[in-house]
């Protein structure tokens, strides 16, 4: 499929016009949902004691909501630097394979390495999905400017969104501010569940991680996130192995049952889904 793009007659549109086309592509539903999530982040950061410049700094220089939320949580909890760094690094490890997958699609023969390093900063779920689905249809020379136009706009707009939401959170009625903070966990459960449509192991990891958190927090409040990642992820890998086609989910460890049921991620629900998938 991809070869059709390169087989086309050379396109004489300038890099600038491709950049502007990428900017226009910003107007889309995924970008709108992401803006809602950054509205939530601004409120969360404000509630957790981050200043406005610190909040905008995280948006611009981290640009990965899970990592940003880990940082904000660590700031609020007074987590040591090293533990915070490890938790962020672990939550961000997924960015490496994502970047590796995007680069062959993004680069042209003559693209300088530093341009790729710079653009890799924008690899996060929304821009990555956009790049992987849109770029293969464009001529090679158009891809870097098109992707740059899209991702710079996406990041710039969300810096403003987070700042406005941080500022608004200080003057919102408490009920609205609370609803703003709730946006983040809600958005994350749903988008992670969706992103894992073809990876049952990741759905198990999502369920096991939420279930294991309370117990592991009681065990070690400082390293609860790292432990949750290792225990929840490990269990998900094992379960994914033991049950190649998980028709009936095994009863998880005791705390798991309660929380997942409370969050609506109960076994019956999953079994139903797997049944559908099997058809």
């Amino acid at each position: 499929m991809r070869s059709t793009a390169t087989d086309r007659p050379p396109d004489d549109r300038s890099a600038l016009s491709w950049f502007l086309a990428g900017q226009r592509a910003f107007v889309s539903l995924p970008a709108l949902i992401l803006m809602a999530a950054f509205t939530g982040f601004g409120g969360l950061a404000q509630a957790s004691g981050m200043s406005l410049p610190q909040t905008v700094f995280l948006v611009a220089f981290v640009w990965a909501l899970p990592s940003m939320i880990v940082v904000v949580g660590a700031v609020q909890a007074g987590t040591p630097l090293l533990a915070t760094m490890l938790a962020v690094a672990l939550s961000a490890a997924r960015l490496m394979p994502m970047t590796m997958a995007l680069m062959p699609v993004l680069r042209a023969d003559k693209t300088p390495k530093w341009v790729l390093y710079a653009l890799s900063h924008f690899v996060a779920v929304t821009a990555w999905v956009f790049g992987m689905s849109k770029l293969p249809d464009l001529p090679r020379a158009a891809r870097v400017p098109y992707f740059a136009g899209f991702s710079l706009t996406l990041t710039g707009v969300n810096m403003i969104v987070a700042a406005a939401s941080w500022w608004a959170a200080t003057s919102l009625p408490p009920i609205a501010a609370a609803a703003l903070v709730l946006l983040t966990p809600l958005y994350f459960i749903l988008s992670l569940w969706r992103a894992a449509a073809r990876a049952p192991t990741d759905r198990l990891a999502l369920i096991f991680g939420m279930a294991a958190m309370p117990g592991l927090h009681a065990l070690s409040p400082q390293f609860d996130l790292l432990l949750t990642g290792l225990v929840g992820g490990g269990l998900a890998i094992l379960a994914g192995r033991v049950l190649p086609k998980p028709a009936a989910p095994e009863s998880p460890a005791a705390p798991a049952a309660d929380i997942t049921a409370d969050l609506g991620l109960d076994g019956a629900d999953r079994a139903g889904r797997d049944g559908e998938g099997g058809r």
């Binding site: 938790a87 490890a93 992670l192 999502l206 991680g209 939420m210 958190m213 949750t228 225990v231 890998i237």
Partner: peptide
Amino acid sequence: TIVKAVATALVAGVIAKLI
């Protein structure tokens, strides 16, 4: 696969904490 599962569980822990 392993890296992704661990990362997902870690983010799930963050979500549980937020709630």
